[in-house]
Design a protein around this nucleic acid. Structure first.
Lengths: 189, 189
DNA sequence: ATGTATATTGAGCAATTGCTCAATACGTCA
DNA sequence: TGACGTATTGAGCAATTGCTCAATATACAT
């Protein structure tokens, strides 16, 4: 039996509820109930806006970690990037991402978390692209600019998918993103 | 002196406040105060979630109208699209757009408004692209797919800009979007 | 044992906010 | 004029929600 401190249980409960319910609907009472602690304890250790942002940041730090696996070649990593970006399992994360973009405009803690998550993601993606260039998997003028465009396109497609866009499906979204990369590299691979 | 009905003044006040303050912060009291009417009147004519969505929809119906000017050639229209998309004056609209994407996940009225606005925008953009093909301004396999990609990329770039992304500026965002179009058409123009 | 600090609880506070409702004014039609 | 519907007002309701705080338990040091 794993004994977790109540402080940690609060954080874990926040993470779980964010994934289940999204960023805008989760409340402190739901968190303390899920964690099995009194409502006062949450405020003893945290302030809600900070806790929420911390949990959000932890979620996407985990996502960034998943981006690159040990021993994976750049083409393999990119193939996974394209596939996993729009997999149904990723839907809760899309929601958290899109909601955070909006909330960040009035919540400094979330704004900081989003900036940090973007930076991590772009670093990993740029690393993969750069390594692919040096291994001659593909040619790219400016890997970081390509990473940014891929990221922007993915964000945009995710927004469309969440809105149940009539012209789009998970499969088509993936095709659009692959299409962009194909045009950037100017080759099949 | 223009005499506007109080009902219309409420709608206009909502529009103005949305543009000034964003979607998530405006409240009914601010609207009635701005409109110079009692708080009860708003609820006599509207329900707040509907009013807010109606005002949001009106704003972006106006934006879609601006997309195409009479007598404008497709290349001229696209140049304006690239320039105006990231102009500083457009910032309030970015905010409304990004906030609406997040709110739509729990607000059916906003969700409907976003879907409708996207549809209008894509229709206009597709029309411009298609006309450019028939005039041989550029070549495109699937104009509507290109329109969707341009739209997705723009949404993504807007999200990055609102987050004060370190790698991005208004000018660079515009360049990224032009870059995408250049790769899609495979030519300068 | 005594004292001190930290952990923990949950009832209740205080602020927020969309909305109700009784009262009143106004306009129109018979 | 009287009657009836619509317009209009704002005090106040009711629900929500993060957070406070006094009370109690627990752990640890002297």
């Amino acid at each position: 039996m794993t004994t977790t401190s109540k402080r940690d249980r609060i954080l874990e409960a926040t993470v779980a509820l964010l994934i289940e319910q999204g960023l805008l609907t989760v409340q402190t009472r739901a968190v303390t109930e899920r964690a099995g602690v009194g409502t006062g304890l949450l405020n003893h250790y945290f302030r809600w806006p900070d806790l929420r942002a911390t949990a959000w940041a932890a979620i996407f730090a985990g996502v960034a970690d998943t981006m690159r696996r040990d021993g994976e070649t750049p083409p393999e990593a990119m193939r996974r990037f394209f596939t996993e970006s729009f997999a149904p399992e990723a839907r809760p994360f899309w929601r958290l991402w899109i909601e955070a973009e909006g909330l960040a405009l009035q919540d400094p803690a979330i704004a900081e978390a989003v900036t940090s998550a973007r930076s991590q993601l772009r670093d990993v993606l740029t690393e993969i692209l750069t390594e692919g260039v040096s291994r001659a998997d593909w040619a790219l003028d400016a890997p970081r600019a390509t990473a940014l465009r891929l990221e922007a396109m993915r964000d945009g497609l995710v927004g469309l998918l969440l809105g149940a866009d009539a012209d789009l499906s998970e499969g088509k979204a993936e095709a659009h993103l692959r299409d962009l990369f194909r045009r950037e590299t100017g080759q099949e691979w």
